[in-house]
Design a protein around this nucleic acid. Sequence first.
DNA 1: CCGTCGTGTCGTCATAGGCA
DNA 2: TGCCTATGACGACACGACGG
Length: 275
Amino acid sequence: MDMVNDSEVTQGQQTDLGDTGQNISVVHVAIPNQAVQVQSVIQPTSQPSVIHTTHQGNTIHVVTEDEFEEAEGKKRREILNRRPSYRKILNELSSDTGGISGMTKITEEDSNSSQEGMEAADGASNLIVPTHTIQIASHGDGIPHTGVQTLTMSNTGLVTSPGGATIVQYAQGPDGQFFIPATNVQAYQIATPTSLPQGVVMTTAMGSPQGVGEEASRKRELRLLKNREAASECRRKKKEYIKCLENRVAVLENQNKTLMEELKSLKELYCQKDA
DNA sequence: CCGTCGTGTCGTCATAGGCA
DNA sequence: TGCCTATGACGACACGACGG
């Protein structure tokens, strides 16, 4: 295992350099709030097209694919036991990557309101209705992030109000990549309904066996409803997280490209000087 | 046209983890 | 400690692509 010293690095970068078309490998280093620097590097070998790096303190560990897989297998099993929430991961990501332009921190309100924010940012059909569940009905293409979208809402008890929290907004570029602009974030806040959704009636029909049965059934219905919505929200956050990662990949690839070019020109300069 | 396959979405269950 | 929430896992279903 090679050791590469550096100042600050982001968490466990995985860098696929297989398609660089060049015979060297570069470690990605994203330094929060600073220009990106690559201090290290350069493996003049044709072999490991995939290099994985992790870091401990101020040290980056560069491992081969095999080493990585071995370690990752153990880690994955641990992860399967319990992963941190996507909100946590996103927040860690965004705090890690202050250097990456446009990464916006997600707050509790943010994750609740992203759909509305995206909707508002689209500038199309802002249909905000007091609501409980939120669905994005995409028009035509089935992709909820493009085209005109309508917020279809049902039930009662939810308050939407402009102003307040910032939300993470993704814009899909023409090349299919997603970006999170730091500016141009819309703000809507959704309060979790404190009242029961329509159709769920609070009863206290205790006392008779039938009443107990009804109560249990009602509780189950309520639990299922809440869980249904929680699952939906969770999936939305998961997608958000994935898009965030995709965005991160795009940024890092861009940085990598720039650094490669810089390295190339510096090499040329050095060779000229030497000659 | 029909069967198959891959993919996406949704509802539900189980459970870890947070909180009062 | 019990309740609640978030999320992984799983099955069911829908839908489009593709080949025969």
